[in-house]
């Protein structure tokens, strides 16, 4: 059906929507929008929100073990930011009539996905550095253009989020820098973490453009503004010089600077692994989702109590219209 859309005459609603898109103004919740546009957004924003909250785990895991008080405080506020990002994004999705409880349900039962990057383990403190530097760094490359995405509430949520992401990236890089200037053992920790996180970070941008089924439409609707490969290139171009400053080796034998293009040429990631992890067979998929589900289930009686309490309060404060029979 979709393929015929252009040949078909557009309804007045569709015309107005296309006009709005073309003018570069934002689509707002009150505006008419095609069903698929709404669905695509709900899927993307929902996945994004889920990624933020699942993303709390690999780092949350080190809050209790951060090696200095300063690092502990920074890590706490970073993980807290991610919870906030989740909240902004669920709110943005709710403007599309999606329901947060329902989305969380789908996360808990595996019907909605989150970024595969969070299915890798964090066995070492240096992973906190690598995650901030590379994972938040890659997220920034993805997210900065989203500040101009066509859907207003999503774009505005991204503006708030991006401000905090750059702090996340900086603190991660600073952890790496400190390790690399420390003992040989610390530098090795940093190198190992880079080895662990480099390829998963490269794959955060999604499949290659020629293998990315959802991309085309998202680009047309200006939900996405750059293709996966364009964003990936941008990330590699930023991250490689940063690795050089650290004195670390990027684990890619095909990596080289291309004078002509002014970009780095990089090797092909292991896409088979990528799809395996997406399919739920990554090292930590089960653990992440079951932790999430456990927190949700353990909190049920607390949320129930809050609702029951609020209802009791509302009854008390509501003025009585009729006398209660004794």
């Amino acid at each position: 059906m979709r393929a015929n859309q252009n040949s078909k005459t557009l309804s007045a609603d569709e015309l107005k929507f296309e006009e709005l898109l073309a003018s570069g103004r934002k689509i707002e919740p009150r505006d008419w929008m095609p069903d698929d546009y709404r669905k695509t957004l709900i899927r993307q924003i929902g996945q994004h929100a889920h990624s933020e909250i699942i993303g709390m785990q690999p780092e949350g895991n080190w809050i209790t073990r951060a090696p200095s008080l300063k690092r502990k405080a920074i890590l706490m506020s970073k993980v807290q930011d991610e919870a906030g990002h989740g909240l902004y994004l669920y709110s943005a999705a709710e403007t599309l009539e999606a329901d947060r409880t329902d989305m969380l349900e789908k996360l808990n039962n595996g019907k909605m996905k989150y970024s595969s990057i969070f299915n890798y383990p964090t066995p070492c403190w240096a992973d906190m550095g690598a995650i901030g530097w590379l994972v938040d760094g890659a997220a920034i490359c993805n997210q900065v253009p989203l500040c101009r995405t066509s859907y207003g509430p999503y774009a505005r949520a991204m503006v708030r989020i991006c401000k905090e992401e750059s702090f996340h990236q900086r603190q991660g890089y600073e952890i790496m820098l400190t390790l690399c200037r420390g003992s040989a053992e610390q530098k090795q920790m940093a190198q190992d973490a880079l080895n662990r996180w480099w390829w998963p970070s490269i794959m955060m941008f999604g499949p290659r453009d020629d293998k990315s089924p959802n991309s085309e439409l998202s680009l047309k609707w200006k939900i996405k503004l750059f293709s996966n490969d364009e964003l990936r290139q941008k990330f590699v171009d930023i991250a490689v010089p940063q690795a050089n400053i650290l004195g670390l080796t990027v684990p890619d034998n095909d990596l080289s600077w291309n004078e002509e293009t002014g970009h780095y040429t990089y090797g092909e990631p292991d896409w088979e692994e990528f799809f395996e992890v997406i399919q739920g067979n990554g090292p930590c998929n089960k653990e992440r989702v079951s932790n999430r589900r456990e927190a949700h289930e353990n909190g049920q009686w607390v949320r129930d109590a809050a609702i029951a309490y609020a209802e009791k309060r509302a009854k008390i404060s509501r003025p009585k219209t009729t006398q209660d029979p004794l």
Binding site: I53, M56, Q57, G60, N61, V302
Partner: peptide, 10 residues
């Protein structure tokens, strides 16, 4: 961390 009854409480 990441175990609260809801996000607001986290």
């Amino acid at each position: 961390a990441a175990r609260g009854p809801d996000l607001e409480e986290d």
